[in-house]
Design a protein around this nucleic acid. Structure first.
Lengths: 243, 243
DNA sequence: CGAATGTTTGATCCTTGTCAACTGCTGTGG
DNA sequence: CCACAGCAGTTGACAAGGATCAAACATTCG
């Protein structure tokens, strides 16, 4: 199978930094194929011990956990460049589930090769650790949000982050980015009820600050949005790893 | 300086799994010393670019972030075996602050040596990634809690996790573990107000399920606690990594 | 002893969740 | 072609869990 990993996110560092030919050669031996899944389909299941790891090339999805009483928490939204399955890779099993929102194209790796990959390509191992640290950072921000921000602040914050992140991926077209989820998904992500989420969204729309409909998120006034979110507008995605 | 890393948590995998002599030799070159800090002192600051990384040998502390409006979120409590500063290590700066609750003894590493460490010791690099993945798992659980659990459920869940984790470290003496924090810290960790936290604690104490005073957390009835927490009592700390 | 810090308790308010009904859209089958 | 079900979004009324305010109490420490 021809391997086209020139933009493979596992070596993204700065969002899809291109790889050298020898790097592609090395990655190619790790990569085992590509996978395309339809919308709303399950990619990884909590508790499963998936033999494959993925990197997102296209499309969006979400990670989630469910409580014993059935309530669902969306841990994070999944964007192009994200790495899926690290937990299954280094621990014995996945600690959350992943499903697609739109149809997605995934780069597939064999978990079994992860170890030799670490041994033979320390730079790539470092990248992986970097990805994990970035993920940890995002989760830390999310914890801060859920713990300390009000409903409006949470939504404003989420909009800002999504908008910035997708913008950094070059997916922004005059102020709008694709955000193909349901209101229920956002509610579950922010720990709010669907009804309250809806009403808060209406308020933001009415304030002419940001709007989200038909799967597109538009930010009209990033400044006020940042104010509403109690967030520094500039500090979105960490971009300059060491080395 | 004599290096005593036989139980260094960076190679813990299964909570302080002893290292072989050659491993200790290798670690020794990475380790640069030990540090002891007093209670309530700052170890790492958000935004700083610390030249040192730490591993906790003794004592407890907490990681936190503060919002622009001054509200504080405790990201997680820090226990022996935790690794501090990974973000500063692989990203440009720390994304949260760390401070001690009790006095702490820390194992100190030079950040500058991290890269060669990755190159020369792929197994240890793998361990580091594993630590990051475990941290990610804990944060995911925390997000679930903050998003979907009620006040009582959150406190019950926190107590259960702390009790299990410290128990696994061998710090449990007839049902009680050291948990040297203030009610305000727990409140900030769970996104609750101090007052409500206090009242909920009183209720748990009155129910004879768990009690926390003078820095010691006692769990009298793990079963009911797990029920209250909507949690599976068994799934505490992931223990069996690959390789 | 007074000051500082942390815990406890009561009264009140308000943000958010719950319940319920209605809209608009899309796809399906008679 | 229409009836209908199913799903996502919208809106109003009401209830409640938790926040806020305020004050008392206990300990420690200089």
């Amino acid at each position: 199978m021809p391997v086209n990993c020139r933009n493979c996110p596992i070596r993204r560092r700065d969002c899809f930094l291109p790889m050298s030919d020898s790097e592609i050669e090395a990655m190619g031996r790790f990569k085992s194929g590509e996978l395309t899944v339809g919308p709303r389909s399950s990619i990884l299941m909590e508790g499963s011990n998936s033999p494959q790891l993925f990197t997102v090339l296209e499309g969006q999805g979400l990670r989630y956990k469910v409580l014993e009483n059935g309530r669902r928490q969306v841990i994070s939204f999944v964007f192009p460049g994200d790495f899926l399955g690290l937990q299954a890779g280094v621990m014995s099993e996945m600690k959350h589930s992943v499903e697609s929102a739109t149809s997605m194209r995934l780069c597939v790796f064999e978990r079994a090769n992860l170890w030799s990959f670490f041994r033979d390509h320390p730079e790539r191992a470092f990248d992986l650790t970097w990805l994990a640290a970035v993920e940890e950072h995002f989760l830390g921000e999310k914890v801060l949000s859920l713990g300390q921000r009000s409903a409006t602040e949470r939504i404003a914050w989420a909009f800002l982050r999504v908008w910035e992140r997708l913008g950094a991926l070059g997916l922004r077209t005059n102020g709008a980015v694709p955000f193909p989820h349901r209101q229920q998904d956002l509610a579950d992500a922010l720990g709010l009820s669907l009804v309250h989420t809806n009403k808060t969204l209406a308020r933001l729309r009415q304030l002419q600050v940001a709007g989200w409909s038909d799967g597109w998120l538009s930010v009209f006034d990033p400044g006020t949005l940042a104010d509403l979110a109690l967030a520094d507008p500039g500090e979105a995605v960490p971009r300059r790893p060491l080395l």
